[in-house]
Design a protein around this nucleic acid. Sequence first.
DNA 1: CGGAATCCGGAACGATACTG
DNA 2: CAGTATCGTTCCGGATTCCG
Lengths: 114, 114
Amino acid sequence: MPQFLKDNKKYYTPVEYVFAKIGGTYKMPLLWRLKDKTWRYSELKESIAHLSDRMLSKNLKELLNDGFINKEVIPEVPVRTEYSITEKGMNSIPIISMLRDYGFELMKDDGIKH
Amino acid sequence: MPQFLKDNKKYYTPVEYVFAKIGGTYKMPLLWRLKDKTWRYSELKESIAHLSDRMLSKNLKELLNDGFINKEVIPEVPVRTEYSITEKGMNSIPIISMLRDYGFELMKDDGIKH
DNA sequence: CGGAATCCGGAACGATACTG
DNA sequence: CAGTATCGTTCCGGATTCCG
């Protein structure tokens, strides 16, 4: 008894829908970086050390298809690709910010220094 | 190059730490239900139709160990078990509330009715 | 330089049966 | 009533290779 369907996938709660769109390990870190300026593919790659090409391109593509980011290919040699955030993407920033703050709070409670 | 370790697990961002504590499919729905009143195990089970005993007990145990909820066993026959939210758990409610609101917003953008 | 395609392992998750 | 044990499956993400 699903509450709603979207693209042949069942969702039971709105929170679940948020996770489907900007959840996972890398999407929020990517959006967080893109909120201030445009980034090149290689810059994003270097800024998240443990991130593989597979996961980076996969996550960028999904964020692009879901309207959270823009992609601009500049036909230089070699080619340059710039990623930027959309208005829809910017709407997610306060959410991520709140989750970050709450994360720091939980870490502090658990005696984790950062 | 992990940013920090906790219980032999690597975390790279505070958001990741939040997901480790109250992420997954069921923890937020459980906390959301417990915010208003105490619930019995069987009541929680019935209120989330697609939730198995295995996942319910597993998630309740983790929330208990992490201090988000309380458990009280009332030695009647048959035994009754009451779950309630802690102050630490209540701190997560505004986060969940914001995620819910944002989820409804995303759903509306995507033409999903609820 | 900026990806895509394929393969694969482990953890998460589900279904079912059983128990104090 | 409130779980636990066991087994099977799914899926996320890593490693590797290749391409315009």
